[in-house]
């Protein structure tokens, strides 16, 4: 199968290892990964913040880019429940708000062939054992948009359970939000950090060495909290664990080096 990879803006800019792992995984499963060069972002940040008029051209750009890619590809995959959620639930809606019915129709067509990574693997490619190896204790955070927008259910966990030598530990209160919410983390920073504190406590309570999820954005948030509190727990995207093999193991992220300055607890900073 030829599969177009929508890397997402966040992985492109901040987490290239996640995009690389997605490609590695697809290729190991015998598929051809295509990365449309003109891709940028799904526009979710604009849309969820209310900047629909600004987001509309971003949506159009995404639709045009992946519509063209789908001429030669069978499907689009993104390592993000949130971005796929936007493609599926928001793109046509935004086009409709500006009475661009043609764009709405094209957006719906692209959305119909766009999958979150675990959906693509389990539903489209029909695999749960992707031949991965990862010999460390992991806890998995299912993320709100994967759970409640895409309804991926237990697909990611089924994929992880099939990973050789993994020690998968259940996360308490897994379905409650980590408090990221895009610009919510900035606009309502106090509430966001209160939610993050509870999520970090839940992750820490598992004793896992790695917290994994299907969304780099949530992981950036949780990872930022884990790191700030010197928990020694790192984060890895689902794609990175699934891409890991005995021959080419994905290293466990190193806890950050001790800082010279006194540690600052959340809220204690200026």
């Amino acid at each position: 199968m030829r599969i177009a990879v929508f890397t997402t803006c966040l992985a492109d800019a901040l987490y290239p290892a996640v995009a690389r792992a997605t490609v590695t995984l697809l290729e190991r499963l015998g598929h051809q990964a295509v990365v449309p060069a003109d891709q940028t972002c799904c526009g979710q940040m604009h849309l969820n913040t209310g900047y629909w008029a600004r987001g509309l051209p971003v949506v159009r750009h995404h639709v045009e880019t992946f519509e063209a890619a789908l001429d030669s590809c069978d499907a689009v995959v993104a390592p993000s429940g949130s971005c796929v959620g936007s493609v599926r639930h928001q793109h046509a809606m935004v086009a409709a708000r500006y009475d661009d019915d043609a764009l709405a129709e094209r957006a719906t067509a692209v959305a119909g062939r766009t999958y979150e990574l675990s959906e693509l693997l389990v539903d489209v490619l029909g695999v749960t054992d992707v031949g991965a190896w990862f010999g460390h204790p992991v806890t998995y955070y299912p993320t709100c948009h994967s759970l409640r927008m895409l309804r991926v259910g237990d697909k990611p966990v089924r994929l992880l359970r099939a990973v050789q030598d993994i020690d998968l530990i259940e996360l308490p209160g897994a379905d409650s939000c980590c408090g990221f919410g895009g610009t919510f983390a900035l606009k309502n920073e106090a509430t966001s950090s209160a939610m993050l504190t509870d999520k970090v406590a839940a992750v820490t309570s598992t004793g896992a060495q790695v917290c994994s999820a299907g969304d780099s954005s949530c992981l950036m948030h949780i990872g930022g909290g884990l790191s700030r509190l010197r928990t020694g727990i790192g984060t890895l995207h689902l794609a990175q664990i699934l891409a890991s093999t005995r021959e080419h193991p994905c290293p466990v992220p190193e806890p950050r080096r001790p800082a010279r300055r006194r540690p600052s607890l959340p809220g204690a900073a200026r």
Partner: peptide, 23 residues
């Protein structure tokens, strides 16, 4: 304004090359 983020969370190191550059 990035301080609003870093008041409560660390930010990961930035990669030397973006994914599209690596690709």
């Amino acid at each position: 304004p990035a301080s609003i983020w870093t008041r409560h969370r660390d930010l990961p190191p930035l990669p030397a090359r973006t994914f599209r550059q690596q690709w």
